[in-house]
Design a protein around this nucleic acid. Structure first.
Length: 226
DNA sequence: GCCAACGTTGGC
DNA sequence: GCCAACGTTGGC
């Protein structure tokens, strides 16, 4: 029932028009994404215990300010998440293969930063956790939904979502600016944010973080705003 | 509101 | 399978 919408990505489903006959475009997109996903996961895995019980870290973007898309407000802030029953919501509306594949890689109890995008003060505002692993995003079948995808079939849903639960606010807001400053510095000196996906894959709305990235960002909570 | 970045579409 | 046109993301 909670059905926030995060505006994640193109309204236009990547291949809404074909898929009856040929699906080459789709499959290209998917396999490309899968590769990216895999390499990312491999990268993360090498930093960890390698097999069981690996927890992953994520950053998920959502718009905290009202913006209408097909007459529907895309706003979903961390305050909105907090206000949901059980402070839990489904993360619907993702329509990008890479982002979708990351959603599908999420495990119960994985932690994710809640990032406010497309707003006055973009940045990380809080922490949430995954409370339900990927399942079909119902909005792809709803004609009136801005993220409706007519090419997706009920018996083979194309798009997925997860459920997330509010964990806590950041002790202080971590602005994009500040992350960017560290990213630049770390590129030069090889610090933890040197290849943060927020800067290397600009438009990706669901993205993985390494343990190092996650820990470093948490450590910023204890520092003075820069 | 502008526009750079970048993913997708579709003609050829 | 290339690539120009187009649409979206999201910072500024």
């Amino acid at each position: 029932m909670p059905r926030p919408r995060k505006r994640q990505t193109g309204t236009a489903g990547p291949d809404r028009k074909k898929l009856s006959g040929k699906r080459t475009k789709t499959e290209n997109s998917e396999s490309t994404s899968v590769k990216l996903e895999n390499s990312s996961l491999e990268k993360m895995t090498t930093f960890k215990n390698g097999g069981t019980d690996l927890s992953n870290y994520w950053l998920m973007k959502s718009e905290p300010e009202s913006r209408l898309e097909k007459g529907i407000d895309m706003k979903f802030s961390i305050e909105d998440l907090k206000a949901q029953p059980k402070q839990t919501a489904c993360w619907d509306g993702v329509r990008n293969y890479q982002a979708r594949n990351f959603l599908r890689a999420m495990k119960l109890e994985d932690e994710a930063f809640f990032y406010h995008s497309n707003c006055k003060q973009p940045g990380i505002v809080g922490l949430m956790k995954i409370v339900k692993e990927a399942y079909p995003d119902h909005t792809q079948f709803e004609k009136s939904n801005p993220h409706y995808d007519p090419s997706s079939k009920e018996d083979n849903p194309k798009w997925s979502m997860v459920d997330v639960q509010f964990v806590r606010m950041m002790k202080r807001f971590i602005p994009l600016d500040e992350l960017k400053t560290y990213h630049q510095a770390h590129k030069a000196i090889g610090g933890p944010l040197k290849s943060m996906t927020l800067f290397t894959r600009q438009r990706l709305s669901v993205q993985p973080l390494t343990q190092e990235e996650f820990d470093f960002i948490l450590s910023l909570e204890e520092t003075e705003p820069s």
